[in-house]
Each structure stands twice: as structure tokens, then as C-alpha cells.
Nucleic acid binder design. Structure first.
Length: 510
RNA sequence: GGCGGCGUAGCUCAGCGGUAGAGCAGGGGAAUCAUAAUCCCUUGGUCGGUGGUUCAAAUCCGCCCGCCGCUACCA
């Protein structure tokens, strides 16, 4: 069976999960579910990034030790994933022992290959950004203190540090990008990475001595590993590294890392360089998605407009939220989240277009066909046209999802939904009931089959709702994958009493 | 400063060399099976500006204007 390994980033635990985390995880989840539906053996990984000075400080401010602090926040992220219907196969935490072992093993391989050396680093360091800045980048305030371009306070730090010989990898990385043109997408992000690498690479500081909350460097416990080296390693930890006999090691290299655009460089430059330096295959693809604004404004704690995705689920339901996030904006672009836009999608597309189509079809069958699935009968051109559209969906979506074009995938499904609404109006089975009940039955069967195709391919996007729809369509549990669409369902099966899948959302008065 | 992207109907966007498209919103009509849902027709754009290439340019090239991303440097 074909294997497919995909990951979300591991989320940094210095804050609570918000809509951005939910978005990344939901998008990855749709792909994971799609690949399973398409017959792949999937390993879908998410988790939390728990080391680093910011976490150490946040824990200190909360008055608890870092491990307890991260236990709490990690539990919150795990709960968020569950609340979003995320079907991850594993949840990795960088504070786990398996991860420490993997990081140590990777470090030792890099050291053995001469890719790491001890030097020292000094400069202006911003704890908040986990980054050093050049003197010229700083903004001097009247009181003499300096701030990073991000506004974070900086302090002069001089410390010994291990370095990764990133500078040795410029040409090899460029050759790698050349040979793997799809490695970074979308194209705009690829251009940025190419431009960055062409500009020359400095060696990368990969250890710190200024704090303790991290994985100790082998044979030099005064140092802890740089959080990004630590964090990126999670993707091979979960595959069993360094045990290449592990059950999941055959999943490596990962088919896809989904990342936010702010961490493209780490994944597209540092990560493949480190892996190649250690003699490990780099991942196959990196895809960078965009960011959400909220009601037209940047999401920020100070504006107080950070959205808890669980509150949205409570108000609108999980599947409408999942649908909206992937339908509203091309993956890779930035987008704006607004209540009004969500309600428009929910009412217009889910309730009116699809939900109502299923409801009118199923209630006609319940009332006029004794609730039994009709015979296929003799089909005319209009029947075949609709079924050709719904029958093509699996192949069409496979191509769209290969490109992570979720919004195009959903638009393609909705073209068929609209065609089905036009079909039912033109065929008017409620009129045929009086004049030609045999033809009416054929029409209703066509609609039933078209809805089956639609609901089947929509399962990854809206698992619960589509499970209910397939229940109502009488599709057995074992016949809901893409391959099963090749077989017609037998006539005469008794269908359950239909009930609405997507109720219209009505804004509370006042 | 360098590299890159974007600017098309009221809104969100597709089209990227051959007589301007979709969804939503607006207007008119039909139907009444259905979650007052649906269907049909329709108003609406000098495709940011300007110059050029071409038989033909949203579509290619130059310049300008306005946004945005990555990156570098001076003080």
C-alpha cells in the first residue's frame, strides 16, 4: 500500500491555540483523510514544540516549573486538535524521551560528519524573538536602551556556541531546489527561498548556554540545543529515528510538511541542509500557507481579537468552520475571517445549495418511493450528464488536492451541486409523480447517485456531516471510499427518514 | 537598494495573445418537491496609468502610480 507521511508544524507552547493553529491542522487533516479515502497508508503527525527560553520564562512567570507548564499547554493543544476533528496518528512533544534520543543521535551524526564545530557568538539578542540582531538593525530609544526591529527588547550576549556549517550547503541546496522544483510551494515562497540562499549562507548557531530549558548537547551539557534544531527533528523522531528498523521509519522522507509562511526558511533551508549533512533524505515537499486577519484587522493579543476556534465551533458547528476556512481563501494566500463571510458560506452553500438539495431529494423518495432506493432504470442524456459530473469528482479533487488547492476542489464540487439543483428543477420529479412515476423514480435515483458521489468526496472536509448524509443515502460504512464509487448500490434498500444536515444560521435578534 | 508578487464588475477572485468570466450582492420572471430553499433571464467593467511590440494585448515589453512579501545596506 502506498505510504503518505504529512505533518503540521509543532506548535510553540508559549500561548493558547488560536484560529491560525486550527487552520493549519484542519488543512493537513483534510489531506490525511483524503489520502486514506484514496487507499493510502497515512501517517499524520502533529504536536508541540516545548523548549526554549521563552517557554522557560513563561513558566517562571506562571510560577511553575517548565515541565508542568508545558504539560498544561500541550494538553490544551491536544484538546484543540480533537475539537477540530483532527485525525492525527501521533502527537509528538519535544519534551518526550524519544525526542531527546533522536536529537542526540542527529547531533552526533552531524558532529561525526564534521558539520558542527564549537565557536562563540556575541551580539544583541532578543529573547522574545529567539534571535540575534545586528547593531544597525536596532532602534535606539531616548533612554539609551535598544529595541529589535520587531520591538522586542535586546541584550548584549556573548556566549560559546556550537555552529552548523550551513555555509557549506549553499550550492548543494540550490542544486537540490533545481532538481526538485516542487519542493517549496507556492511559487512566491519558493522565489524568496531561492533568493535568500543565493544571497549566501552564514553558519548557524545551534546551541545556547544562556538558559537550561532544552536538550543538552552530547558531551557538553553546558549547552542546550538551539530550539529550531530541536523542533525540526520532531519529524524524524516520530518516524522512529534513529531506529531505522522502527515500524514507521519507512514513512520517511515525509511527503509533505505544511507550514506557516513565517517558518518557511527553517523548513526549506536549514532542515534539508541538516538532514543531508547527517546523511538522511530530506522531505519531499514543503507547502506554506497564509495568515488570517479578523474582520479586516491583524490578529493580536493587544487588539483582543484573537479567535478561539472552539468558540466558533460552539456557535456554528465544526464542519461549517472547516468548510469556510478551506473554501474562503486559496491555500497559500492570506485571508480575512469575518462572521458575515462565514454565515454567507454556511447559509448559501451548505444549507441552501447542498443541504436543501439532499433534503428535497430524500423527502421525495421517502414520500413517493416508500423510502426505498429506486432502480437505475433507463437514463436519458440529462441524467448521464449529471452523473458524469459527479463521477468525475474523485479524479478532479485528487488533482486539486495534490496542489493543495482546497478552494478549487470545493468549487469543483459546488459546480456539481449547482448542476444537481438545476437538474432537479428541470426534471421536476414532483410533477412527474402525477404523469410518469417510473421516470420520477429514475430521476430520484440519479440524484441519489450524484449526492453519493458528492458526499463521498466531501468526507475529508466535513467528516461528521458527510457521514450523516451517507447514512441517509443508505451507503454502507465499508463503501464510502473512492474506490467504492465504481460500484452501483443495489436498488430496493430501505433508506432512513431524512433530516436536515446543515441548518440555516439565523443571527440572534437584538 | 536588490529580488518577487499584486492592482479585472459594488465585494471576493478566475482568465494571462484571438470579439471581457464565475460566485456573492442588485433587478425581473418561473416553480412550489425542499431548510422562505431552488431554477431561468438580467443590470454592471475605458481589465491601475502611460508608451511600445503584434493583423490582434487584462494577456508580451518599457516607464509611472498604489499596495504587499522576502532580503540587503547606509546613517
Amino acid at each position: 500500500m502506498k505510504k503518505f507521511y504529512l505533518t503540521t508544524p509543532i506548535y510553540y507552547v508559549n500561548g493558547a491555540p488560536h484560529i491560525g493553529h486550527a487552520y493549519t491542522s484542519i488543512a493537513a487533516d483534510v489531506l490525511a483523510r483524503w489520502q486514506r479515502l484514496d487507499g493510502c497508508e497515512v501517517f499524520f503527525l502533529t504536536g508541540t514544540d516545548e523548549h526554549g527560553q521563552k517557554v522557560e520564562k513563561a513558566a517562571a512567570e506562571a510560577g511553575i516549573d517548565p515541565q508542568r507548564f508545558t504539560d498544561q499547554v500541550a494538553a490544551d493543544f491536544r484538546a484543540m486538535a480533537a475539537a477540530m476533528g483532527v485525525s492525527n496518528d501521533d502527537f509528538i512533544r519535544t519534551t518526550e524521551e524519544r525526542h531527546r534520543r533522536a536529537c542526540v543521535a542527529l547531533w552526533e551524526r552531524l558532529a561525526a560528519n564534521g558539520a558542527i564545530y564549537l565557536g562563540h557568538y556575541e551580539g544583541w539578542y532578543a529573547v522574545r524573538d529567539e534571535a540575534f540582531y545586528g547593531e544597525d538593525e536596532l532602534v535606539k530609544k531616548p533612554d539609551g536602551t535598544r529595541l529589535a526591529p520587531t520591538g522586542a527588547p535586546v541584550e548584549w550576549v556573548r556566549e560559546p556556541s556550537y555552529f552548523f556549517r550551513l555555509s557549506a550547503w549553499q550550492e548543494k541546496l540550490l542544486a537540490f531546489y533545481e532538481q526538485n522544483p516542487d519542493f517549496i510551494a507556492p511559487a512566491a515562497r519558493r522565489n524568496e527561498v531561492l533568493s535568500f540562499v543565493r544571497g549566501g549562507l552564514d553558519d548557524l548557531s545551534v546551541s545556547r548556554t544562556s538558559f537550561r530549558w532544552g536538550i543538552p548537547v552530547p558531551n557538553d551539557p553546558a549547552h542546550v540545543m538551539y530550539v529550531w534544531l530541536d523542533a525540526l527533528t520532531n519529524y524524524i523522531t516520530a518516524a522512529g529515528f534513529p531506529d531505522e528498523a522502527a515500524a514507521r521509519w519507512p514513512f520517511w522522507p515525509a511527503d509533505l510538511h505544511i507550514v506557516g509562511k513565517e517558518i518557511v526558511r527553517f523548513h526549506a533551508v536549514y532542515w534539508p541542509a541538516m538532514l543531508m549533512a547527517a546523511g538522511i533524505a530530506p522531505p519531499k515537499r514543503i507547502y506554506s500557507h497564509g495568515w488570517w486577519t479578523v474582520e479586516g484587522e491583524k490578529m493580536s493579543k493587544s487588539l483582543g481579537n484573537v479567535i478561539d476556534p472552539r468558540a466558533l465551533v460552539a456557535e456554528f458547528g465544526l464542519d461549517p468552520l472547516r468548510y469556510f476556512l478551506l473554501r474562503e481563501v486559496p491555500f497559500g494566500n492570506d485571508g480575512d475571517f469575518s462572521r458575515r463571510a462565514l454565515i454567507t458560506r454556511l447559509n448559501g452553500e451548505l444549507a441552501n445549495d447542498l443541504g436543501n438539495l439532499a433534503q428535497r431529494t430524500l423527502s421525495l423518495i421517502a414520500r413517493n418511493c416508500d423510502g426505498l432506493r429506486p432502480e437505475i432504470g433507463v437514463r436519458i442524456a440529462a441524467d448521464q450528464a449529471l452523473l458524469a459530473a459527479s463521477g468525475a469528482l474523485a479524479d478532479v479533487l485528487r488533482e486539486r488536492l495534490q496542489r493543495l488547492a482546497f478552494h478549487e476542489a470545493l468549487e469543483e464540487v459546488w459546480k456539481t451541486v449547482r448542476a444537481a439543483n438545476a437538474y432537479i428543477d428541470h426534471q421536476a420529479p414532483w410533477a412527474l409523480r402525477k404523469t410518469d412515476s417510473a421516470r420520477m423514480a429514475v430521476v430520484l435515483r440519479v440524484l441519489l447517485d450524484a449526492l453519493r458521489g458528492i458526499a463521498t468526496v466531501l468526507q475529508p472536509f466535513m467528516p461528521d456531516s458527510m457521514a450523516r448524509m451517507l447514512d441517509q443515502l443508505g451507503v454502507p460504512e465499508g463503501e464510502r471510499n473512492l474506490a467504492a464509487l465504481a460500484e452501483d448500490l443495489p436498488a430496493g434498500a430501505s433508506l432512513p427518514v431524512p433530516s436536515g444536515i446543515f441548518p440555516r444560521f439565523v443571527e440572534a435578534a437584538g
